[in-house]
Amino acid sequence: MNLELEWLTFKGVILRHFKEFVSYRTSVFATIIWPLPLLALNVYQYLGLASGQQVGQVLNAKYGIASFSGMIILGTIVYLLYNRMLWGTGASLQEERFNGTIESLFLTPANRMTVLLASGFSSLLEGAWWIVGVFLLSWVIFGVQPAIADWGAVIIALISTMIALIAVGVFFASFFVLTRAADQLATSLQAPIRYASGVAFPVAALPAVFQLFAYILPVTYGINALRSTVVQEGTLISLVGTLAPLYIFTAILIVAGHFILKRVEAQAKRNGSLYKI
């Protein structure tokens, strides 16, 4: 592996994605605006049924969650980033296929995994506003005060969640191109994952069958890690139980993504069907 070449590939993909992103003013505008209605919707699904104070009391008594809005905000941030991964990185190879450029991409000597990892990283960069912006909005609108005991734990939880989300994107990119139905799978997965990963409530509140599903989703662990460190004064030690499965899933998804991608390439060489949509 030539690190200089890998870096060039990585940089090239990021630059390309960035240029594509800023070329459409609507994309930039939507990225800035979208958290607002999503956050409001998640909050008002509760406030339509009880006052903020009542909800806070119930969540604290039943699930030990001290901040209702903090819980929603962190769930929403991770969901937004996951969504960006699903559509940005997950659908990236399918997008190449639609654009008629997938064959050219697979003919270059560039490392496929580097291309996908760079795509994931650029998706995170595009979504970075959400982390800063949503926190600012939460502070201004909801007066959310973070309860942080260990800043190191917050940074590690955030970085680990991002790494896991990139792995999710890489896996989906390979899987989607194999199934040729990226957009449809991404669309179909949005709602079930939003529900099961506990974006709007703790996973413990889900019916048992969905809790089982929740624990195979890296998004669940990402949300838990951030909730624990940002609004529940979690420390690095208390985070181990959440981060361990998060990294296990990250490793599984990266390895699975790598092998599926190899299969896609082999299949393309064998029957020349890569460009087909």
């Binding site: 049924l49 009880a50 119930v58 949005q190 529900y195 709007a200 889900l206 019916p207």
Partner: peptide, 16 residues
């Protein structure tokens, strides 16, 4: 989409 939104509303009702 709507079914899972419905489930979300139902779950929130159970929580409160």
């Amino acid at each position: 989409g709507p079914i899972f939104f419905l489930l979300t509303s139902w779950t929130i009702l159970q929580i409160i």
